[in-house]
Design a protein around this nucleic acid. Structure first.
Length: 348
DNA sequence: AAGCCGGGGAG
DNA sequence: CTCCCAGGCTT
């Protein structure tokens, strides 16, 4: 009779798991913040953002009472900016709906914006020893191999069965924090996508994929599609004092809520478009060489177009604002603009 | 059920 | 280059 799934994981985790990550503390705010930052983002990337964020917003109250722009500025470069918007909105809800105390039940936690079933379970398990299962990319890979689950992991049927399996494997409440961490660590360090270290795995004895030698065939790969190509022209509108004119983007969509350069479809229509949209007269110079930015779902070619503003009376309208290069770098801006600004400041 | 939403690490 | 990461929300 082999030891239960959870006990083998716990026994493996004690010597081989990750025990010194900065958010491994008994504080729901820090756990929550880390879980949001870690959504679709690797640990090594998150660590410096997490430290800066916590220094500026040490508790939920300071986050709830801060302007959204300050939150976005600290999120700048991390991507998926809806996470920052939801994080701020959720802090406000904790303040107003839960009297400033982070909620305890998974359902209450998942009622906050940006927190779904898996993230709510992780927060509750780490903070309150709650017996709730997580189901993230790591767990899906581990379970799909261990139980030899075929099919597209994104499909509803597969997902439902994996939730049920994950719930059935939970240990006693006191073991939930270590168990939840162990599952993540196993997926990140042993049951990896490319070269799983099955001989180091505590689940190798009853892993169906291992037994059948099909570790590399599971989980099924996501159907891939070719990246669409898009193009845009970003206006480098500089004032006599060297400042740049930025436009705040709409709340939803790419780079939602961030400050970026005004965009037009083509270099030829730049002057007419700026006049029509903002009542601003500009004169353009020669375009700079384009730079390419890769998203998950498309490839964006950006042509920087330097220009001068010749009529400034309408600038209060339309979400436009002057930024010095240093101010812009400290604001919530998308990564390609950060790269572009570093070129500009080098030239200045 | 499928699409949208960033950026970067790793191989 | 490709794959995918401590997913959730919208349609």
């Amino acid at each position: 009779m082999t030891e239960p799934f959870s006990q083998r994981l716990l026994r493996w985790h004690a010597p081989h798991g990750r025990h010194d990550l900065p958010w491994q503390v008994n504080d729901p705010y820090r756990v929550w913040l880390s879980e949001i930052m870690l959504q679709q983002t690797q640990v090594i990337t998150v660590i410096p953002y997490y430290a800066r964020f916590l220094e500026r917003f040490p508790d939920i109250a300071s986050l709830a009472n801060a302007p959204l722009d300050d939150v976005l500025a600290l999120w700048s470069g991390l991507g998926y900016y809806t996470r920052a918007r939801n994080l701020h909105a959720a802090a406000v809800q904790v303040r107003d709906r839960f009297a400033g105390v982070f909620p305890r039940s998974p359902d209450d936690i998942a009622s906050l914006p940006g927190i779904g079933r898996s993230t709510a379970a992780a927060i509750a398990a780490f903070s309150y020893n709650t017996q709730a299962a997580i189901l993230d990319g790591n767990v899906k890979r581990v379970l799909s191999r261990w139980a030899s689950i075929e099919g597209n992991l994104a499909s509803k049927a597969i997902e439902n069965s994996m939730w049920a399996l994950a719930e059935s494997l939970l240990p006693a409440a006191a073991d939930m924090p270590a168990y939840t961490q162990a599952l993540m660590d196993l997926g990140a360090t042993v049951c990896t996508p490319k070269k799983p270290a099955c001989l180091a795995c505590p689940l190798q004895d009853d892993c169906v994929a291992k037994r059948e030698g099909r570790q590399l065939e599971l989980p099924w790969p996501k159907p891939k599609k070719t990246l669409p190509e898009r193009e845009t022209v970003m206006l480098l509108l500089r004032g006599d004092d060297g400042r740049l004119l930025l436009e705040q983007r709409p709340p939803s969509g790419i780079w939602g809520g961030l400050w970026s350069l005004p965009e037009v479809a083509t270099t030829l229509e730049a002057e007419a478009a700026m006049l029509a949209r903002f009542g601003v007269r500009i004169e353009t110079d020669a375009a700079w060489p384009p730079l390419v930015h890769i998203f998950t779902h498309f490839r964006l070619t950006i042509t920087p177009l330097p220009a001068r503003v010749t009529g400034v009376e309408a600038l209060a309208e339309g979400g436009l604002r002057w930024f010095s290069p240093q101010q812009a770098l400290a604001a919530g801006i998308p990564t390609p603009l950060r790269r572009l600004l570093l070129q500009v400041t080098d030239l200045a």
